[in-house]
Computed example of a mutant assay.
Amino acid sequence: MIALVRYTLATTIHGQRYLAPVLLFFAGVGISAGSDSGPLPGVYALNAGILLVCVTWVTMAVISVEDPTHRAITVVAARGPVKVLAAAIVVSALLAVGLTIIGLGLPLAMHPRPVTAADLPAGALAHLLCAAFGLAFGLVCSRLVIRRQGYALLAALFLVTAALLTTGSPPNTLFKRMANTSNAADILPTAAALLPLGLAVLALAAALTHIVSVRRD
């Protein structure tokens, strides 16, 4: 499995399809971090929203880096599609974690702000929640599920927009609470309670992607 993850990571880096969403994340976080945009929880909420968009894009890019022929060869070599899909999820998650670290650290480096003990944990939970939803959206909108790129893009835009703007969705609920408070300790219970829901959505998306891809192959 480790060798397969290394192969997927090397293929992703060589393909360079991850660069566009990563650069978009740097640009978005740089703009939010470099301005006096208020207390740190609100900044982290904005960065987490940007992360949701970019991780969705990154996941779709990681899964699409191999064409169907090369993926079929990889599946045979790995003795099944489960490991191949798991490796793609691990690589996407590693990239999401890297972006999360940047989203948490850049606001502190670019614009000095008062920092409390709860700011970083709350920000980390918000980023991880959005990363989980981004991974899930990227999976169900990838080429394994939606073959036509135009339809996949429309589906991804719909899911991301719904998650960010629909009242009651976990990301939207957390964003509103973070934007309306200057005390991150108040939102820690909510953030901690929503993260397992995000992981459950990711698990369901992974299962759905596997089932659809196996039937189509």
Score class of each variant (00 low, 15 high):
Ala156His: 04
Ser182Phe: 01
Asn180Gly: 13
Leu154Asn: 06
Ala152Thr: 01
Asp186Ser: 15
Asn180Val: 00
Thr181Ser: 15
Ala193Lys: 15
Phe175Val: 03
Ser182Gly: 12
Ser182Val: 02
Asp186His: 14
Phe175Thr: 04
Thr167Asp: 13
Leu153Arg: 15
Gly150Thr: 05
Thr166Asp: 01
Met178Arg: 09
Thr190Leu: 15
Thr173Phe: 00
Leu188Asn: 07
Val160Ile: 09
Thr167Cys: 04
Ala152Pro: 00
Asn172Phe: 04
Leu153Tyr: 12
Leu165Gly: 02
Thr173Gly: 07
Asn183Thr: 06
Ala179Asp: 11
Thr161Cys: 11
Asp186Arg: 15
Thr167Lys: 14
Arg177Cys: 01
Asn183Ala: 12
Gly168His: 08
Ala192Leu: 11
Phe175Lys: 13
Lys176Ala: 08
Thr166Arg: 12
Gly150Gln: 08
Ala193Ile: 04
Pro170Val: 00
Thr166Leu: 14
Thr167His: 14
Ile187Gln: 06
Thr190Pro: 00
Ala162Tyr: 09
Thr173Gln: 13
Ala152Glu: 02
Ile187Ser: 12
Thr166Ser: 13
Gly150Tyr: 02
Thr190Met: 14
Asn180Lys: 12
Ala155Asn: 07
Thr161Val: 06
Leu159Gly: 08
Asp186Thr: 09
Leu165Met: 13
Gln149Ile: 00
Ala179Trp: 11
Lys176Gly: 12
Ala192Ser: 11
Ala155Glu: 04
Tyr151Asn: 12
Arg177Tyr: 08
Leu165Asn: 11
Thr181Phe: 05
Ser169Leu: 03
Thr173His: 04
Arg177Ala: 15
Ile187Thr: 13
Leu164Gln: 13
Thr173Val: 04
Phe175Leu: 09
Thr181Arg: 12
Pro189Phe: 01
Leu164Met: 12
Ala192Met: 08
Thr166His: 10
Arg177Gly: 01
Ala155Pro: 02
Leu159Asn: 09
Arg177Pro: 00
Gly168Met: 06
Ala193Phe: 11
